[in-house]
Every structure is written in C-alpha cells, then in structure tokens.
Amino acid sequence: MTHMAEDLKASLSKDAARLPDRAPAAEERRRTPRGRSTRERKKRTADVVIYAVLAVLVVGLMVPFIWMVSSSLKENNQVLTVPIQWIPTEFVWSNYTDIWTRIPMMGYLQNSLYLAVIITCLQVLTGSLAAYGFSKVRFPGRDVLFLAYIGTIAVPWQAYMVPQYIMMQNLGLTNSFNALILLQAFGAFGVFLMRQYYMTIPDELCEAARIDGLSEYGIWARVILPLSKPALASLALLTFVNTWNDYMGPFIYLTSNRLWTVQLGLRSFVGQFDAEYAMIMTGSVISVIPILVIFLIGQRYFIQGIATSGMKG
C-alpha cells in the first residue's frame, strides 16, 4: 500500500508539472485565430497598397498615349494649347482620311512591315541557334566567348555608326533595305535572352536525343525549339517593336522617299518654320496599331518568356 501511495503521489506530481506547459499551449491556441486574422489584414492592406501604386503607374504610362490620341483629333493650332485640352471642342475625324492623301502612308507602312518581319525572323533564327551553342554545346572557351559577345551590348551604337556606314557604302548597299537587314540580322540581346531560357531546359533531354542519333541541328529543331515558344515570342515581339520604331537606321541608309519607313514618313509634316502636329499625332496613332495588335496576340507567351528567361544563369 505504501508503494501504491508513493506511485500515486509521483503521478500527481508529474501531472502537476505538465499543467504549466499545457496552459501556454492552450493560450496559444486561443490566440492563434486572432493572430492569423491580424496577419491576413496586414496582407490585404499590403495588396491594396501595391495595386494602388500599380494603378497610378499604369495611368502615368497611359497619359502620353491618351494625349496623342486626343491631339490626333484636333486642329493643328489646338494641339499645344496651355493648359492641355484633353477633350477636343470639335473632333476632327478628317485627319484620319486626309493623311492617306497627304503622304504615301500605305507605302511607308509596307516598308516598315517588310523590314520588321524580315529582321525579326532573322534575329529569332540566328539568336536561337547561337544561344543553343552557348548553352547546350560544350567547347573550349565557350563561356569566355559568350561574355565577350554579350559585352558588345555595352558599346554605344554611335561609336561604330560611321565605320558601319563606310562598310555598307563600299559594298554598295546604301539606299537599300539590304543594309539594314544585314546589320540587324544579329543581336547580342537576343542571344542572351534565348540562352537564359535554354539553361532552364534539362541537359538530359539533349543527351537522350544524341543517344538516339539526332544531330545538333536536329536537337535544336526537334527538341529545343518546341519547348521555347515563350522565349521565341518574347524575342520576336521585342525585335519587331524595336525595328518598327527605329528612326536613325532608316534615316542614315535610306535616302529615297519610296524606301522610307513610317517613322521617316512622318517627317513630311515637319517644315522649315513649323510642323503639322495634328497630322504627326495622327500618323503616330496609326503606326502604333500594328504593334498593339501583335502584342495582344502574343502577350501570354511574351509575359511567360520574360518571367522565365532569368530563372537560371
């Protein structure tokens, strides 16, 4: 009996020792919902602040475009009024019909489209091929050569603009589309973008394809390219927009009016003493439409490609 009493006393003392541990645990369980709700409120508040900041930035980015559209529907003397008149007193819709007769706008759009499509296709082809070599083919000095090639991005175009023109002039390619196509068919940025995406593709896929007997070109065409649609769409869109908006390149190499792009064609409304700003804004709105359509078509691939191209270096 004595032993049973001692065991019961020891058991009670152990239970008593556990009680202080259970009390904080129970208190913690009681506090958890309140703590969780506090964290959720803070998270919702942070989300609201982030979305509000993004909304302000979007509005700020849209202001120049809204002003351009508004100016394209005004008389020429109403474009630069102070303060800005966002809604015209009278909408001049005739600007969008007159511009086609004032300048050969259709020809300028066709020239821009031709250059943009050809250069985009070539940059996607050369950039993806070079990126495959720099990411999936092992050869001595690969990384050093890649860094040297990417380093050319830091060299300003004005530094080699004159030597390039002299080379094209000696080759007899000035005043033709061939000069612009040849100079812009290769781009270090495109190689960098595609390589970063290719690095996220497992090397085991290429090794398995080599074991099956595929050549390097076969692996690139049948394995890598089908997996790279987001990166290809991103590069294509960025190249197309850059080529479409290019002004200095066509200005230097294209002297004939029949070869002018839409960016050069808008210079027709700039005179010696004044400029027809309403017509310039009208032409700018028309020139933005092809870019807007292409972006809306490929935005899903574009966003995915930009988001995943920097995941692995």
Rank of each mutant, 00 (worst) to 15 (best):
D15A: 10
R18T: 02
P20L: 00
D21C: 04
A23L: 12
A26M: 03
A26D: 08
E27G: 13
E27S: 13
E28T: 03
R29F: 08
R30Q: 11
R30L: 11
R31F: 04
T32M: 14
R34Q: 10
G35L: 03
G35N: 06
R36Q: 13
S37N: 02
T38K: 14
E40P: 07
R41A: 15
K42A: 11
R44E: 08
T45L: 15
D47Y: 11
V49N: 08
A52Q: 06
V53K: 15
V56A: 15
V58H: 14
V59W: 04
G60A: 08
F65N: 12
I66N: 02
I66F: 09
W67I: 03
V69H: 11
V69N: 09
S70W: 03
S70M: 00
S70Y: 00
S71R: 02
S71G: 06
S71P: 07
L73H: 01
L73Q: 09
K74L: 08
N77D: 06
N77I: 02
Q78P: 00
V79G: 12
Q85V: 05
Q85L: 04
Q85K: 00
P88E: 10
V92A: 11
W93R: 07
W93C: 09
S94L: 01
S94D: 14
S94I: 00
T97Q: 05
I99W: 10
W100E: 04
W100H: 01
I103G: 02
M105R: 05
M106C: 03
G107F: 05
Y108G: 05
L109K: 05
S112N: 10
I118P: 09
T120L: 01
T120P: 10
C121P: 03
L122Y: 08
L122V: 01
